[in-house]
Design a binder for these strands. Structure first.
Lengths: 330, 330
DNA sequence: TTCCTCAATCGAAGCGCTTCGACAAGCTTC
DNA sequence: GAAGCTTGTCGAAGCGCTTCGATTGAGGAA
């Protein structure tokens, strides 16, 4: 089935179907009407020969590469499983649109964007984990390369952005704890470093949380290291002995928080309630398992890819898309 | 700096440097000798115009795309962070060789391989998480697409494979426990499903472990779910009350194993020792933190990419490369 | 019947690059 | 000082595809 060695070309297909090469092209692209009989013969030849158009030739002639780039952050502190879900979700969705995905890392920075734009190796771009002040954003605007951002930079004017509705996520957590009858509650947030970097994202959770729970709630940033986590939790409990509910928005800390609570004699799920903002595994791998609001990586990826496809087709898309958070109770 | 709108071509560079287009090409590729003065002028023009060769045109003319594909598994049970490390390691290394990386998912299967091979969209391929009986392997052989596999299929004849030396990893764990003075020890392995799928990998750990520790060791498969883990550990302890050391080769189970041991009154790090085969975070996010042998994803990825580059350059590479395990004590 | 339209197809002209052969100079080498 | 090498450069021929007229024949309108 591999054909006669290397390289089945459109000419081979045309010869076998007894038509011109351009006709084959039109059958495949559907850009001009072709009689059903001819189309059938062509498709048969395509199948017989196992023909796939040469990507380079196609991109050269049509000015469409059929590839989109995805730039992932590599920084410490990013939660890897979420990135991976994101990447695979994007690939899966892209394939539905007959596109491939080129993987880039954020350390290529603006120069990397310029490179892929100029070399026309991709038609568009998805930029993950965009920060409030992101040097890539300006380059992106200048290049005019069709793109979708995950996250919201300070100035999102004219850009297409997608993200989880973190404000709503904060509210959902506050509501959950309220429903469990918790009076005084707190939000244990990310490390200071994360707050410093992406105010937008952490701040929005905070606002959503406080907005719903009012004066009886407080927010504490929280470091990642086990010992510091334990200390932070102790301080939190000491500062507010009436505390009965906690939302944790800090993946690596969850396990240690649970330990600290156990040490302090809190029985989670009974006289004390905890809800996690983070991936499923984190909430599942502690005892007892916790309810959680996950970052819906796959949904975000799919949305981003779909929006990018629309832009490539010249259709318009909303500037800003917020995905609703979903609480999973365990 | 963005040049006069879209598309700086080699002709623009040639005109600005006052040479023929072919000369620019030779300067850039180094395939013919060019006088230093001319080369300088050309490079200056390239920089001035921000020229990057059109990837499609280049691939069409040179029959080299400058892109490699990486096919990642998406199956449940794969540990996502490791995949992500792998992917980013591969991208980083590939960029050092001026190559880009196309991301594919294993669910495209053999047809996906045929597609990328026929469309010449990539020059070579890295296949992750190859199983003992992998349907992609036969296709790969038939296509003759340069490739490197991570993992060892049953018949690796003529293929280039790279993997962690799992046998050595098993031995390292046994040695560690022996050094801590543990007499009776056990290996708590992966779930039955994993064993069923990739005998090679799990079996080799087992052999390494048993080979070093002899008759006083035993191997138990272990499911992923919290409750089953707890039960398995209880049974294990009941079956061998003299047990003082445990190697755990099952990422999701580690946290629950620690709980079960605590429940059974074992003080890990004092009268009982545990070592993990798995990623750092898993060993770090339990209390106390555990020593571990990690799957060196980045190293494997780099090695795989380097081997693939050599193959693309027509150099030869070893059929089989085993990376030495490294024990991290915490 | 003649003219016009429309559907179906063909042929040729590129897309931007690499590479091959040719060709001037400037060197050796006897 | 003619013959032969090198070295540096150019021009042209493609790589395999898409796309833009042009062309043909059939059907409908007049």
């Amino acid at each position: 089935m591999a054909g006669p060695g290397r390289g089945v070309t459109i000419a081979d297909v045309a010869a076998r179907a007894g038509v011109a090469a351009s006709t084959v092209s039109y059958v495949l692209s559907g850009k001009r009407s072709i009689s059903p009989e001819t189309a059938d013969r062509v498709m048969q030849a395509v199948a017989d020969l196992g023909y796939h158009p040469h990507a380079g030739a196609r991109s050269l002639a049509s000015r469409r590469a059929g590839v989109i780039a995805m730039m992932l952050p590599l920084r410490d502190g990013m939660h890897l499983p979420v990135l991976m879900q994101f990447a695979s979700g994007a690939v899966t969705e892209a394939r539905r649109h007959d596109q491939d995905v080129l993987l880039m890392t954020a350390d290529e920075g603006p120069a990397g964007l310029a490179r892929v734009a100029a070399s026309a190796i991709v038609d568009g771009l998805i930029l993950m984990d965009v920060e409030v002040r992101d040097p890539r954003v300006e380059t992106l605007r200048r290049l005019g390369l069709p793109s979708v951002l995950i996250g919201f930079p300070a100035d999102a004017e004219g850009l297409t952005c997608v993200d989880l509705d973190f404000t709503a996520a904060g509210s959902v957590c506050a509501d959950y704890l309220a429903e469990r009858g918790c009076g005084d509650i707190a939000l244990l947030g990310a490390s200071e470093a994360v707050y410093a970097r992406r105010t937008g994202f952490a701040e929005r959770v905070r606002e959503g949380f406080l907005g719903r729970s009012g004066a009886r709630a407080e927010v504490w940033p929280c470091p990642d290291e086990p010992v510091s986590v334990q200390r932070t939790v102790k301080e939190l409990l000491a500062a507010n002995p009436a505390l009965t509910g906690l939302a944790v928005h800090n993946e690596p800390a969850v396990g240690h928080v649970m330990h600290a609570l156990a040490d302090a004699g809190k029985r989670v799920g009974e006289d004390f309630h905890v809800v996690v903002i983070g991936p499923d595994e984190v909430a599942e791998r502690v005892h007892p398992q916790l309810p959680s609001v996950l970052v819906p990586a796959e949904t975000l990826a799919e949305t981003a890819v779909r929006h990018l496809m629309r832009k490539l087709d010249g259709l318009d898309v909303p500037d800003s898309t917020l995905v609703e958070p979903q609480l999973t109770v365990r």
